[in-house]
């Protein structure tokens, strides 16, 4: 520290001050930009790691909801793995039984919370599906069917927005 002080000291004994004004300007602009992005975006669902969402021109905002993620034939519900889908149809037809069980449990819990809050009359279960761009429509169809059978009829298909 003493050596640094000696370095900054000129030959005539005066100290050369470090000009931080331009750096302060950059940091202030950056800080304002970041704070503004937080205020405007207001993300209500978080992208699940490993899911490469398709791009879209849609600008409809996703709603806060239960999140089902599908990638590499793996189905996850709220960040927890539920099942792996085998290629081809199963014995249950379109229904994915493990996902249906978990969704029924989730809906029962949400309904219980809504009743405690006195909001059970307006309660409508919502679900967001984050499907990887490489999955086939067959998988998406089965997940949507299962969601609908479990009472989650209000479905949002998450995409990367245009902006």
């Amino acid at each position: 520290m003493a050596r640094r002080r000696r370095k900054n000291r000129r030959k005539d004994g005066t100290t050369a001050p470090l000009r931080l004004t331009s750096m302060m300007d950059i940091l202030t602009v950056l800080l304002l930009f970041l704070l503004k992005s937080f205020v405007v975006e207001g993300e209500v669902i978080t992208p699940v790691p490993g899911v490469d969402l398709p791009e879209s021109s849609s600008d409809a905002a996703p709603q806060a909801s239960v999140v089902v993620a599908i990638f590499d034939n793996t189905v996850m519900l709220d960040g927890q793995m539920v099942t792996r889908l085998e290629n081809g149809s199963s014995d249950d037809g379109l229904l994915i039984a493990p996902l249906a069980d978990r969704l029924n449990q989730t809906r029962a819990k949400e309904l219980e919370i809504a009743q405690l809050r006195g909001e059970d009359v307006d309660y409508s279960p919502k679900i967001a599906i984050q499907g990887d761009r490489d999955i086939s429509f067959e998988v998406l169809e089965r997940v949507m069917y299962t969601c609908n059978q479990s009472g989650f009829g209000d479905i949002a298909l998450a995409v990367i927005g245009a902006s």
């Binding site: 975006e41 905002a61 996703p62 949002a156 927005g161 902006s163």
Partner: peptide, 30 residues
């Protein structure tokens, strides 16, 4: 400066650089 150096990496790590949107579907009951 100290405050900025702590605050900005924290905000950058939490910032969302992709805008999530959705296509909404209302499925009828079976």
């Amino acid at each position: 400066m100290n405050m900025f150096i702590i605050l900005i990496p924290f905000l950058v790590s939490m910032a969302a650089f992709t805008h999530l949107a959705a296509h909404h579907f209302g499925l009828p009951r079976d």
